[in-house]
C-alpha cells in the first residue's frame, strides 16, 4: 500500500464528520462507481479489451442478490458471494462468445450483449418484475452486542460498507495487476503476437480478465440492490456502461488511482451541476472534449508512444 492509498482511505473514513446525509448518499454512489471503474479498468485499461456492456454484470449482481433475498431471505453478508459468482460467470460467457473478435468489433458485441441482458431482465416479468423491477429487498442488518442494528435508509452505514467493499476491490485489482497476470494482460494489450510468443495464453487470459471484471461488477451490484431496496432494469442501461467507461478513460486507462479519480469527478460533477440542470450534459461533454485535447492519456495515465515504435 502506498502513501496515497492510505491517505485516500483515511480521508474517506473521516468524511462523515463533516458531510450531511445527502452528501454521504452522493459519496456512496461515487464509491459504487469507483468499484465499477476499478473492475472495468482491468478489462479496458489493463487488458485493452474495449467493453461497452459492463453495466450488464452490475445488473446480474444486483438481480441475483435481490432474488436470493426476496425468495430465500439470504442476507447481504452471504448473498454477495453468489452475486459475484454469477456475474463473473455471465461475464465469462459473454467473453467466451466474443473471444475472437477484437477492437471495435468487440465493442459492438459487448454492447449487444449488455443490451440483451438488460432486456432479459426487462421482459422476464414473472421473475424479475419486468420494467417495475423487484421491490422489497431487505436492508442489511448487523449483529451488535447491544442488539440488532438495521441499516434501513440511513446514509452512514452504507457509506462505510461501500468503503470497506471498495477496499476489498482495490486490494483484488492491485494484487492482480502487480503479478504475472497483470503483466500478461498489459503485454497482450500492447502486442498480442509478441505476448503469445512469450508464452502467454492470450485467449485464456482474455477470458480470465473478463471473469475478474465481471466479479467486481457483481459485488457492486449486490451492494447497490441492498442499498436501494429495489432494482429496476433502467438503472443498468447503456448510459451506465458509457459512464463507467468515461471514468476509466478520464482517470487514465490502466491506472487504478485514475479510475477512482475519474469516478469521483464524474460521480460528483453531475450532482454539483444539478442547479443548472439543462446544461449538465453540455458541461459534462465539454469537459471530456477539453480533457481529450489536453491530456489524451487521462489524468493519471501513462502515455503510450505507439507512433515511435511503429516508425521503425
Amino acid at each position: 500500500m502506498t502513501k496515497g492509498t492510505v491517505t485516500f482511505f483515511a480521508i474517506s473514513v473521516a468524511v462523515p464528520l463533516v458531510a450531511n446525509a445527502y452528501q454521504l448518499d452522493v459519496l456512496t454512489s461515487v464509491l459504487i462507481y469507483a468499484m465499477l471503474a476499478l473492475g472495468l479498468n482491468l478489462i479496458v485499461g489493463l487488458a485493452g479489451l474495449l467493453h461497452l456492456g459492463y453495466a450488464a454484470f452490475f445488473a446480474i449482481g444486483a438481480y441475483t442478490y435481490a432474488l436470493l433475498n426476496i425468495h430465500w431471505g439470504w442476507s447481504f453478508w452471504v448473498g454477495w458471494a453468489p452475486a459475484v459468482l454469477i456475474a463473473a460467470l455471465g461475464s465469462g460467457l459473454v467473453g467466451a462468445s466474443a473471444l475472437r473478435v477484437r477492437g471495435d468489433y468487440l465493442a459492438i458485441v459487448t454492447l449487444g450483449f449488455g443490451e440483451i441482458i438488460r432486456l432479459i431482465f426487462n421482459n422476464l416479468d414473472q421473475w424479475t418484475g419486468g420494467p417495475n423491477g423487484l421491490l422489497g429487498i431487505a436492508h442489511p442488518t448487523l449483529w451488535l452486542p447491544q442488539g440488532m442494528y438495521d441499516f434501513s435508509v440511513k446514509s452512514l452505514p452504507y457509506y462505510y460498507l461501500s468503503l470497506v467493499l471498495l477496499g476489498g476491490v482495490w486490494l483484488f485489482c492491485h494484487r492482480l495487476s502487480h503479478s504475472r497476470l497483470g503483466r500478461a494482460w498489459m503485454a497482450m494489450r500492447d502486442d498480442e503476437l509478441a505476448a503469445a510468443c512469450m508464452g502467454i495464453p492470450v485467449l485464456k487470459m482474455k477470458l480470465l480478465v473478463q471473469i475478474c471484471g465481471g466479479a467486481v461488477a457483481g459485488l457492486a451490484g449486490a451492494f447497490f440492490a441492498a442499498k436501494q431496496g429495489t432494482v429496476t432494469p433502467d438503472s443498468f442501461d447503456f448510459i451506465q456502461s458509457v459512464m463507467v467507461l468515461s471514468m476509466v478513460v478520464l482517470g487514465g486507462m490502466g491506472s487504478m488511482r485514475g479510475a477512482i479519480l475519474g469516478a469521483m469527478l464524474l460521480g460528483v460533477l453531475p450532482e454539483m451541476l444539478r442547479g443548472a440542470d439543462q446544461y449538465r450534459m453540455l458541461v459534462f461533454g465539454l469537459s471530456m472534449i477539453v480533457m481529450m485535447r489536453l491530456r489524451p492519456q487521462g489524468l493519471l495515465g501513462r502515455s503510450h508512444k505507439e507512433s515511435q515504435l511503429a516508425a521503425h
Binding site: F172, R175, L176, S179, R180, L181, R183, A184, M186, A187, R189, D190, D191, L193, A194, A195, M198, G199, I200, L208, G254, R302, H304, K305, E306, L309, H312
Partner: peptide, 30 residues
C-alpha cells in the same frame, strides 16, 4: 520488426519474458 510493449517499462518487459518461469496461479496471486 521490433515488437516491444508500448505501455511497459524495460524491467516489465523482462518480467513478461519470465512468464513461463512463474507458473503460480490465480488464487496464489489474489
Amino acid at each position: 520488426n521490433i515488437r516491444l510493449f508500448s505501455g511497459m517499462s524495460v524491467l516489465e518487459h523482462i518480467l513478461v519474458g519470465g512468464y513461463t518461469q512463474t507458473p503460480y496461479g490465480f488464487l496464489s496471486t489474489v
